[in-house]
């Protein structure tokens, strides 16, 4: 060990006892990226995380590596929210989607910043956020209109009133587009039509660009959207896709990749409880092709209702 050197203290003590070092730059408060289940922001129950990086190799965050258990919790939350959300008036759902757009507009800067961190340019990021806001407004408007377009009053030959209307399928599990530069716009594009139609959903965010998904959950949380209507997990599709399509209390699954082996697995697994399965593997979300009421109809069922009409001959015609 030998000799001990006593260093000269670097601490300068002023006469009145206050540190005279010039103030350092303010330390930034970093955000912990969480998942969104039932209107709350837990970390994953598994305690696991992964570190996505951008093209330059910069670490984005310690993002939750969600587990099957997180997914199951999210399905419970989505199922619980189902009757409330589908029971809202269509007009009210439209107002809430519009409110989501308002909240997103107010936090534009944050989303642009995150998109730039995830390899977008400032200009592209601005355009993408604007397009995501506009897409929400687009679907806000459809909430109380698509039913009129796709309903019918059916002129049956017997003495009955008969009509067919779309109704939400129920709980939808969504693997958000993964190989997609527009991580925010594509996420909004797959969620909005599902909830506009009165479904609830569990969404797995883009694995490599997850930041906007978590921040979007914060937008949802401040938009009057009831907890559980949209649940957002971060993690690896390679781990979770199986569970997304396997769960017996999920009514429909949306998958957006071209992976044909996985698509085959999804269709096979969906047979367990006859989930409706939809593939959006070649949609360009950045254009107008990425929005249409037909996306809403992909998670709707048609219900037909019959009731007799009293048919008394002597009552004659009404005119």
């Amino acid at each position: 060990m030998g000799k001990t050197t006593i260093q000269k203290s670097k601490i300068k003590i002023a006469e009145n006892g206050v540190d005279k070092t010039p103030p350092a730059k303010r330390l930034e408060v970093l955000k912990t990226y969480k998942i969104y289940i039932g209107g709350k922001f837990p970390r994953t129950e598994s305690g696991r995380y992964y570190i996505p990086t951008n093209a330059a190799g910069k670490k984005l965050a310690n993002v939750c590596l969600s587990s099957r258990k997180d997914f199951r919790n999210a399905v419970v939350a989505a199922r619980a929210a189902c009757s409330g959300w589908s029971g809202r008036s269509a007009f009210n759902r439209g107002q809430i989607l519009y409110r989501m757009a308002e909240m997103l507009e107010g936090r534009k800067a944050q989303f642009i910043d995150e998109l730039v961190q995830q390899d977008s340019t400032k200009n592209k990021a601005e355009n993408e956020v604007a397009a995501a806001i506009d897409r929400l407004i687009y679907y806000a408007g459809w909430c109380d209109k698509f039913q009129q377009i796709y309903s019918s009053v059916n002129p049956v030959a017997s003495s009955h009133i008969n009509f067919s209307v779309p109704e939400p399928t129920g709980v939808v599990s969504i693997i958000a587009p993964q190989n997609e530069n527009h991580s925010l716009l594509s996420l909004v594009s797959v969620i909005a039509p599902v909830i506009a139609g009165g479904n609830t959903c569990v969404v797995l965010a883009n694995e490599t660009k997850p930041l906007c998904a978590v921040t979007f959950a914060e937008v949802l949380n401040s938009s009057d959207l009831p907890g559980g209507v949209v649940n957002i997990l971060t993690g690896k599709p390679s781990e979770l896709t199986t569970w997304f399509v396997d769960h017996m209390d999920v009514n429909a699954t949306i998958y957006c990749e071209k992976d044909s082996a996985l698509k085959k697995m999804l269709r096979e697994s969906a047979a367990k409880n006859l989930k409706r399965i939809t593939f959006y593997d070649s949609v360009n979300w950045a254009t107008d092709e990425g929005q249409s009421p037909y996306f809403i109809m992909d998670t709707q069922e048609i219900k037909t209702t019959w009731h007799p009409i009293e048919n008394i001959k002597s009552s004659g015609v009404g005119y």
Partner: peptide
């Protein structure tokens, strides 16, 4: 759904 009737069918009815 049949209300106050049952098992009715028609070509125009989904």
């Amino acid at each position: 759904i049949w209300a106050n009737t049952f098992n009715k069918f028609d070509p125009s009815s989904p």
